[in-house]
Every structure is written in structure tokens, then in C-alpha cells.
Nucleic acid binder design. Structure first.
Length: 198
DNA sequence: TCTACGATCTTT
DNA sequence: AAGATCGTAGAT
């Protein structure tokens, strides 16, 4: 298993999002296959955390690609994003759902005994399974890091639809099909609104 | 400081 | 349909 190089991430978030489907998140004994993502693009994406400019929280989104952006949502959930684009551009891909590949027992334990797709379909659940902490925000995802992204076969059949939980965004950004998932996978949250895509 | 509000999940 | 729960961000 080879680690994805930093150059993989230094592209438009939507391209990286598509290519992240099927790739592996590796954290110690746990390996997760990415099955659903959302792109938060640069520039002019009113759904993005970067819509208001640079802040202490979103600083990693403006930094070098291939690093993590972790933030706390609703006071409870830790969300994992992968930083994309060039340095100085605020963009990232949110990891929304995964399929377990290894470390099933550890994942189940961290998820409170939940099994099946309910275990990993939703960004908060992925964060919980990986035991993410806020101090991991800004950490690289390559070069022997505790959390890494490894290469795996590219996914051909995918489905796309509007992003979840961004009602505050402009109408075009609300409608934009920036949520991508593996077509045949049961490890996908909110199947409604997703349609076959290139 | 103060206040409002989330890129959600669970239970009712 | 609504509560949990707290760090951010923007306003004061």
C-alpha cells in the first residue's frame, strides 16, 4: 500500500473528491475505504467554511494540500476534511462515509457497538471511528503520519447530488452536485438526491 | 464578553 | 420533529 503523494491533492477540490472515492484512510489498525465525499471548492463557494475568509479554525484549508482539516460540528462531532488546491486557496473535501476494510472490532467499539452501514455513514461517525481530535487539524496525511491516505483502485461508477446541511448557501451552491459517492455501495448516507454521474 | 448558530446524530 | 452540546464568528 502506497501513500498518496502531496501532488494528488494539489488540484480542484471536485477533481480530488472524485478520485478520493475508493481510497483508504489508515489509522493504526483501522483501514477505511472512502465511499462518500463532498467538495468545498475555491473560489466563491458560499457553502464553504472559507466563505468569510481566513480564520483560526479554517486556517488549514488555506495551507498546503494533503493535510487534514478537522473541526467540531454542533458541539459534538469531529469532521474530517482533506485540504486541496494550492496554498493560499481555501478548499477541501469532506469525508462523509466509509466502508470498513480492517480493524472492524476497534471501529465497532468506538461506535458504541453499532454494526453495518449505520456504523460509518455520516461524517460525524467517520470522525468517531477514527477517534479524531481537534489538534489533528493541519496535520499531514502522508509521510508516516498517524492518519494517512493510501492509494487504492479508482472507482468508475459514481453517483452525485447536492451537498447536505448547507441551506445557508446561495441557491446555485445549494444545488451544485458536489456530493459524490460510490454507486453500488451501501456505505452511503442520505441516498436520496444522488443520481448516476460521470 | 455576549450571543447565535452550525458541512450532525439520535431518539421520539 | 426536536434536543444534545460547545467552539467559532461576528457583533457589542
Amino acid at each position: 500500500m502506497t501513500c498518496l503523494p502531496q501532488s494528488f491533492y494539489a488540484r480542484d477540490a471536485l477533481e480530488v473528491a472524485r478520485d478520493l472515492l475508493g481510497k483508504h484512510l489508515v489509522a493504526g489498525p483501522i483501514v477505511l475505504r472512502i465511499s462518500e465525499v463532498e467538495a468545498y471548492r475555491w473560489p466563491n463557494d458560499t457553502a464553504s467554511h472559507c466563505r468569510m475568509g481566513r480564520t483560526a479554525r479554517n486556517a488549514p484549508m488555506w495551507g498546503p494540500a494533503g493535510h487534514a482539516y478537522v473541526y467540531l460540528c454542533y458541539g459534538i462531532h469531529r469532521m474530517l476534511n482533506v485540504v486541496t488546491n494550492q496554498q493560499g486557496e481555501g478548499a477541501a473535501v469532506l469525508i462523509r462515509a466509509c466502508e470498513p476494510v480492517a480493524g472492524l472490532a476497534e471501529i465497532e467499539e468506538r461506535r458504541g457497538g453499532v454494526k453495518g452501514p449505520a456504523m460509518l455513514t455520516g461524517p460525524g461517525k467517520v470522525g468517531s471511528a477514527l477517534a479524531l481530535t481537534l489538534d489533528q487539524s493541519g496535520a499531514p496525511l502522508f509521510g508516516g503520519a498517524p492518519l494517512e491516505l493510501h492509494d487504492a483502485p479508482t472507482v468508475k461508477q459514481l453517483i452525485a447530488g447536492p451537498r447536505i446541511g448547507i441551506d445557508f448557501a446561495s441557491a446555485p451552491d445549494r444545488r451544485a452536485p458536489y456530493r459524490l459517492a460510490i454507486a453500488e455501495s451501501p456505505w452511503v448516507s442520505h441516498r436520496r438526491g444522488l443520481e448516476p454521474a460521470g
